[in-house]
């Protein structure tokens, strides 16, 4: 049976099933968010999203996101390079450890950091002496965000680098190119699209992170509240208008990222097609 030519009941049942699933679980809630946010009129909506604390929360979210992307990009490239270009003992272990943050519940991740850097930790006196505050402060939020988005970029680059092999780098090195030139001219073009795609995934995940950040933040309004935490705070305080208005901002950011992702996929596929 040629499965692609089957235009019968099965095909349409599946299409309807998928579509209704998406409508019920995705489209409806999204519409509901927008509708609820605007229920008390546009002025109230505008007031909610331009609230001092809302803006601070949004800025902190973006700050944590940018930090996570930058740190994970650097780490991701280093890790991917190490895992694909060198042979060494313990390579498998490193590769597995990179994936750990995805399997560990974010709440646990948060607790781990509280235990590592909090008052009961042996590290605390050192940190305290140098005036470094991690728990219930911005560094803690960034740390938590970096942790949960850890594998996103490296996992995207590793297959791209592995597929490329080391021939071209070797050829460049043989002609006398230094490491930086080799990376810029030979390696980077290979991983460009994978890297950008990883950045997009990492951003999306960083923006929405709740669990780990929640444990580490301390919920100081205007100081350590990220957008998701702020939304929860409003929601718990029965301020539905405010909660949904802030949510709509987060949704908007997600839509932007989704659009970016689609554009990247298209561009990337096109270019890879040409240069393979």
């Amino acid at each position: 049976m040629d499965i692609r030519k089957n235009s019968g009941v099965v095909k349409w049942t599946l299409i309807v099933l998928c579509s209704s699933f998406l409508v019920v679980f995705l489209i409806l809630p999204l519409i509901y968010i927008v509708v609820t946010a605007l229920r008390s009129g546009f002025q109230a909506y505008w007031n909610s999203i331009t609230d001092e604390y809302a803006i601070k929360a949004a800025l902190l979210t973006i700050e944590a996101m940018v930090c996570a992307v930058v740190i994970n990009t650097i780490f991701g490239i280093c890790a991917a390079w190490t895992l694909t270009k060198y042979q060494f003992r313990g390579k498998k272990t490193i590769s597995t450890l990179i994936d750990l943050p995805v399997t560990v519940s974010p709440i646990i991740a948060g607790l781990i950091f509280v235990l590592t850097f909090g008052r009961q930790s042996f590290l605390f006196p050192f940190l305290d002496r140098f005036g470094i505050q991690i728990i219930f402060a911005v560094p803690g939020i960034i740390l938590a965000t970096v942790f949960v988005t850890f594998p996103f970029i490296s996992r995207e680059i590793i297959p791209a680098l592995a597929a490329q092999g080391t021939d071209e780098e070797e050829a460049a090195a043989q002609m006398g190119a230094n490491m930086f030139t080799i990376f810029r001219k030979v390696t980077y073009p290979h991983i460009k699209w994978a890297l950008l795609y990883g950045v997009v995934l990492c951003s999306a995940r960083a923006m929405g992170e709740f669990g780990a950040v929640s444990v580490l933040s301390g919920h100081l309004r205007g100081k350590t509240n990220t957008l998701p935490l702020y939304i929860e705070l409003l929601y718990q305080g029965y301020d539905f208008n405010g909660a949904f208005a802030a949510s709509s901002v987060l949704v908007l950011l997600s839509v932007v990222i989704l659009a970016l992702r689609m554009w990247l996929e298209k561009r990337g596929a096109k270019e890879i097609d040409v240069r393979k």
């Binding site: 021939d167 071209e168 070797e170 460049a172 393979k276």
Partner: peptide, 25 residues
């Protein structure tokens, strides 16, 4: 050195491939 699978730089044009060693120098 001519590599077995040639190891041409896939993301460079023929011109840039040939010029690479000269640019590095």
């Amino acid at each position: 050195f001519v590599f077995q699978s040639y190891a041409l730089f896939r993301y460079m044009t023929v011109y840039d491939n040939i010029a690479f060693g000269l640019r590095v120098k």
